[in-house]
């Protein structure tokens, strides 16, 4: 595993039925730079999402069909209501 964890969300265009190996090959990455537990997510618009290291996300800029990194914000439950700092 690379020193920086695979925290960057990127997408790439691939043929239907593509696998994570296909994505890794297409992007020219090593498996160390990819979150293999997360895998390859078909977004059903011809593109696929995967999680890679920040360094890998930087390296794939310019690879045809690759986009990102995309925001991967923290998400929280909308409740229970928490008081404000002055309450």
């Amino acid at each position: 595993m690379a020193l920086d964890g695979p925290t960057a969300l990127i997408t790439t265009r691939l043929p239907p039925g593509a696998t994570l190996d296909d994505a890794v090959r297409h992007l020219g990455l090593s498996h160390d730079a990819v979150d293999t537990d997360y895998g390859l997510i078909d977004l059903h618009d011809g593109s696929y999402a995967l999680m890679v290291t920040e360094a890998a996300a930087e390296r794939v800029r310019g690879v045809p069909g690759a986009k990102g990194p995309f925001a991967n914000p923290r998400i929280e439950p909308f409740g229970p209501i928490q008081p404000g700092p002055d309450e």
């Binding site: 995309f70 929280e76 909308f78």
Partner: peptide, 27 residues
Amino acid sequence: NSWGSFSPQWDFPPGHPGNYSDNPAHP
């Protein structure tokens, strides 16, 4: 889905290609 993001600090700003809040093309 009873969840979401409370803060823009975790997001890229609107207009950035990686933005989530205002970007229908986010994954």
